[in-house]
Design a protein around this nucleic acid. Structure first.
Lengths: 185, 185
DNA sequence: GTTGAAATTAGTACGAA
DNA sequence: TTCGTACTAATTTCAAC
């Protein structure tokens, strides 16, 4: 976990320096580093870039309602859209959320009306723009929880019982008629 | 741009190997690599991990409606929540979307009712679960567009005019009474 | 899991095209 | 700007413990 904490901040650190920061020997660091990669805990190493500097300063979220039994087609079309950075299947009013990075707002319009709407699998879309990305962590680790300053290490659901019964919260369930929507549907 | 393409797939590649793949000299690769970092085009290098393997297999999106003129407080509270991986300010029905990674669904409930609801800046929330992350690219580049197989390199908004006037699409505007919501409000 | 020493590679500093 | 090369420092590998 310590290794992952270091690599989150600096993915290009040498294994030797990593060993030092974690407090283990170099050979041990090599073994563990390799194990993390081989086990698939670490999937890959990448850079984080400034999208404005590369000319893709507009970010939008498109919430998509997918026609039943057309998920395979939807996935296939997704792979052909280079402007899509992220796509997740969600519960709630919509079926999927995709995040796109483009050069200008007109391209979002083109993307939605021209490309997405042409996919038979897409029943409806809803688009919002991202005005600011307030926080972006490469990833979250279980150890982050304990590192927090003023809060108990871990609260069980029991402990939280009857804590703050706030009526303004709303959990959105899965849309009806959508049972199997994972890879193998 | 070629350098960014290589680093997206392999953020730990040596500058020598990078030079070879991009087709420039070793010395030149060092210069350009350093320039990209110094200019802030490359913000940092990180790893990509398997959240299930680290024990945080539940991912949720929480859409938050923020009380006016309390953005500063909202941001401050966000920084104190280690389970938040991403937060963006959006147009549309809600004001912000935050993505959290936790161990189980009960923790999402705790997070929303106990932590978020206690923040005065938070007026209301709406939570959806992520069932599957279909696609996750480290980042999108303008050059990806041209690399696509069967599609013209670039379509102007004019070209797309009157293409597919689909009535099912819906653009969601900014919520009323929300003018300044960037860092300096 | 550790340490040390060899082999390899990475990073730097130049002049020249 | 880019390249080639020579030089120095660091990392990785591999061995024995």
């Amino acid at each position: 976990m310590k290794i992952l904490e270091v690599l989150r901040e600096n993915g290009r650190i040498s294994v030797s320096a990593l060993a030092e920061r974690v407090g283990i020997s170099r050979a041990n660091a090599y073994t563990r580093f390799e194990a993390l990669r081989a086990d698939g805990v670490i999937k890959r190493f990448t850079a984080e870039i400034d999208h404005v500097r590369t000319g893709l300063g507009i970010t939008a979220l498109i919430f998509v309602t997918v026609r039943q039994q057309m998920w395979r087609q939807f996935r296939a079309e997704l792979a052909r859209m280079p402007e899509v950075e992220y796509c997740a299947i969600t519960t709630g009013q919509h079926d999927a959320m995709i995040q796109v990075r483009v050069a200008d707002v007109a391209e979002v319009h083109t993307m939605v009306t021209d490309r997405l709407a042409n996919i038979p699998a897409v029943k409806a879309t809803e688009t919002v723009f991202i005005l600011d990305e307030v926080l972006r962590r490469p990833y979250v680790l279980p150890s982050d929880r304990d590192a927090r300053s003023n809060r108990p290490a871990r609260r069980t659901p029991q402990e939280a019982q009857g804590d703050v019964p706030l009526g303004k919260m709303r959990f959105v369930g899965a849309a009806e008629g959508r049972a199997a929507l994972r890879k193998d549907d």
